[in-house]
């Protein structure tokens, strides 16, 4: 087994809000090997984006971090000065949901792409320009020379996201943090962007942390998927069997709540209530108040992440419910 590139262990993060520290991540652990993709799936407030931000060292000031967060054996939290700059400039790259907000609108694509090559790579601007055209070709943009002269507003969202990926390639990072990279794009460009990311990962052995709210997409592109709820990991699942064999009731409920493109149902099995945030979690299991399978013990006993099948589940009834969650008691309609 390869040594992990990214190792997160018992990560707890609290942020200051209105003078008090509020937990946003609770006991998050996972690891990521080179060349592999781990998906972080969850709804708002689940902590998936916060996890990525912690890895990128982009936490807001005043954040309290506990637990281990290591990149290539070195603690990310302890990085300072030059080492931190090197880490951010060369080791990890982030791809954002909305490429338009991550690029300076008044500078040409060429300036944006060649900047890192000229400054960090020490290239002449002619060489950097040639390299930029190569990079664009790698992400499937054939007429690179013309694109370099254009401004961001002249490109569609899908094209711009590919430019962002090309910029990532310029530094050839070892870890890509992709935060909902296709959510703001048209459906028809999603496959293309994901295919490019997959190919680059295979070619260059990059590791990818892929953050998404889309269970189906995560199952399709990730080697391992981590489902988060209220700041905790509730399920960790290898392979693509997330839907057929959910290990946690929340995963099952999410899969069922999503409308099916192949058939309409009279009523969707909605999850009652609203997602909670980590700092409001009741005693016991965070999902218990919305869970169709909850029993008395769920509200008193804090569940641990235990191995089951080809993954882990943070549910005290995981073993007993396995295989029955998708057909379990019909969920009650909820109104919050």
């Amino acid at each position: 087994m390869t040594t992990p590139l990214l190792q997160v262990e018992a990560l707890n993060i609290a942020l200051p809000v209105d003078g008090e520290l509020r937990t946003v991540l609770h006991d998050v652990s996972f690891s990521l090997e080179p060349g592999r993709t781990v998906g972080l799936v969850g709804e708002s407030g689940s902590g998936k984006s916060m996890t990525a931000r912690a890895v990128a060292r982009l936490l807001p000031p005043g954040a309290r971090v506990r637990g281990r967060l290591e990149f290539d054996g070195a603690s990310i939290v302890d990085l300072r000065g030059e080492a931190l700059r090197r880490y951010r400039a060369g080791d990890v790259s982030m791809i954002f949901q909305d490429p338009r907000s991550a690029i300076n609108p008044v500078r040409r694509i060429g300036d944006f792409l060649t900047e890192a090559l000229r400054i960090n790579g020490g290239m002449s601007s002619r060489a950097a320009g040639a390299r930029a055209v190569e990079l664009l070709a790698e992400v499937g943009i054939a007429d690179g020379a013309r694109r370099l002269r254009q401004y961001p507003h002249e490109l569609s969202g899908g094209l711009l996201q590919r430019v962002m990926i090309a910029a990532t390639l310029a530094v050839r990072p070892r870890l890509i943090l992709a935060d909902e990279p296709t959510t703001a794009l048209d459906v028809s460009t999603q496959a293309e962007v994901m295919a490019i990311l997959g190919r680059l990962r295979a070619e260059y052995g990059m590791a990818m942390l892929f953050i998404t709210h889309d269970l189906d997409l995560a199952a399709a592109v990730c080697d391992e998927t981590i489902v988060m709820y209220a700041g905790s990991v509730v399920e960790q699942h290898r392979g693509a069997s997330l839907h057929e064999d959910p290990l946690h009731p929340y995963t099952a409920a999410l899969a069922q709540a999503r409308p099916d493109i192949d058939r309409a149902t009279r009523r969707l099995p909605a999850i009652p209530g609203y997602p909670t945030t980590a700092y409001e979690v009741p005693p016991g299991c965070a999902f218990a108040p919305r869970c169709p399978h909850a029993v008395a013990a769920c509200t008193t006993q804090e569940p641990q992440l235990v191995p089951i099948g080809d993954g882990h589940s943070r549910c005290i009834r995981a073993e007993e419910l396995r295989g029955r969650m998708l057909t379990g008691p019909s969920t009650t309609e909820g109104v919050a």
């Binding site: 709804e43 708002s44 709210h213 269970l215 409920a253 999410l254 709540a257 999503r258 409308p259 009279r266 009523r267 969707l268 099995p269 909605a270 999850i271 009652p272 609203y274 997602p275 919305r290 309609e333 909820g334 109104v335 919050a336």
Partner: peptide
């Protein structure tokens, strides 16, 4: 909307 909320609203609309 989040998936779990989207389902609630779709049911409500129905």
């Amino acid at each position: 909307l989040d998936v779990s909320i989207q389902a609630q609203i779709l049911n409500l609309l129905a």
